[in-house]
Computed example of a mutant assay.
Amino acid sequence: MSIEARPAAGSLPPSQPGQGKRTKTRLRRRIDLLPYALITPLIVFIIVLALVPAGMTLVQSFYKAQPLNPPNSFVGLGNFFRLFADDTVVSSMVNTGWYVLIGVVLSTVLGIFMAVTLQKPFRGRSILIAVLILPWALPGVVEGIVWSGIWDSNTGLLNSVLTSLHLIDTYQVFLGQNQFVTILLIEIVQVWQMTPLSTLLILAALQNIPGELYEAAALDGATGWEAFLRVTLPLARPGIAVAMVQAVIATLNVFDQPFVLNGAAATGASVTQQIYFVSFQNLDFGQGYALSLLVTIVTVAISLVIVRLVYRTVEF
């Protein structure tokens, strides 16, 4: 006669093999959903405000979209052909090329110089960095208005200084006369805005360079210039690359400074100004979409080239 063991009253039945593991797995899955739930609003925000407009721009750039001349119709590459046949648009592309070249070179060189100056702690360094950020914090329209007091042909500071130094006899018109001079003076205003950000990006890269490397270079007999070329520049390339990319994006999309300082004059008009004029003055949204798409493609292409040529992974 066999006696079977039965659980005592009020006791829980024995757990099945693997039941505890399944419970832990379900709990872990519930916990793993939390990060996705947290980033969902950001993903929705990016899709609604970035990807959807980008998709609409891509599609509509191949359509004739003129509210005063309906209906919309598919024209293929017709919008792009009409853009390149427009002398005003082509001139703005040339102007923007100069904006990019001057802006990227000046902001990067000045950013490196200022970052190296601020690399080592000194008295008043934090105050100087705070002052440095101010031009970057100002809107482009405000900067254009401020600098118009310098470039103005009637009461401008530049004319006043040059006249006082007897370098010129009469006040000169600097903006709107010569194309290169106009672009250079306008781009100086934008460089004044972009350089603080370039400086901070490069300075962040310099702060990661160990001081022992400079000590080793000094022991090897390297001068300050040689240490800059062989230690500072190579190890700061990630920050320099990021600074150059942000400068490319800013200069390719420059609008406020040319519009405030030079209006709609062709001597300094940028591509983004032409996007505005074509879309909202000519009410030709198809061409506006096409020109916006071209700017986006060029921005991505130049940024990839800079990252490819300049950026390097640095490990200490």
Rank of each mutant, 00 (worst) to 15 (best):
A9G: 08
M56D: 09
P139G: 12
S198Y: 04
V44S: 11
S73W: 06
R308Q: 11
G103K: 00
T313E: 10
F277Y: 04
Y214K: 12
T272G: 07
L128Q: 15
T25N: 13
E226D: 10
L157W: 15
I39F: 13
L34A: 13
P13M: 14
S270V: 01
V245I: 02
V131P: 09
W192T: 12
Q119L: 12
P13H: 11
L34G: 09
S11V: 14
H166E: 10
L213V: 10
V116K: 08
V307E: 07
L33M: 14
P35W: 15
S292C: 07
A269E: 08
L134Q: 12
P258W: 07
V254H: 03
Y276I: 03
G239R: 00
E187H: 02
I145N: 10
F316T: 13
G221F: 06
S270R: 05
L252K: 00
Y63K: 02
T313D: 14
T313P: 06
L33N: 12
L206F: 11
L27S: 13
G239M: 03
W192M: 09
T170N: 15
R82I: 02
Y214V: 05
A9F: 13
Q287G: 09
A241E: 01
L252W: 00
F259S: 00
F228I: 08
P135W: 13
Y289K: 04
Q273V: 01
A37F: 15
L201P: 01
D32T: 15
V248N: 00
R22Y: 09
V295D: 06
S91M: 09
A227Y: 05
V310I: 11
L106Q: 02
W225M: 06
T223V: 07
L252P: 00
H166Q: 13
S61D: 02
S198Q: 10
A222W: 02
L283N: 11
L34S: 12
A250M: 02
L213M: 13
I31Q: 12
G76E: 10
L49S: 11
G78V: 03
L49N: 12
F316R: 10
A115L: 08
P135Q: 12
R30M: 14
V75A: 03
G144I: 04
L261F: 00
R29S: 09
I150G: 07
Y36Q: 11
F174I: 03
T155W: 10
A217W: 05
Q119G: 05
Q193P: 01
P135V: 08
F81S: 14
N69Q: 09
D256L: 01
V260T: 10
I133Q: 14
N95R: 03
L27R: 13
S11L: 12
V146D: 03
Q16K: 10
G286D: 01
S270M: 05
V75S: 04
A5L: 12
S148E: 14
R82F: 04
E4W: 07
T163S: 07
E212T: 14
F84R: 04
L206Q: 05
G18P: 05
I186V: 15
K24M: 15
L77C: 08
T117F: 15
L158G: 10
V52E: 08
P41C: 13
P35G: 15
L110Q: 05
F80S: 01
A5T: 11
P135S: 11
S91C: 11
M93N: 05
V131E: 15
V295R: 01
V181W: 02
L203A: 10
A247L: 00
R125K: 15
G211I: 07
S153M: 09
G149P: 08
T296R: 03
S2T: 06
T163Q: 10
P196A: 03
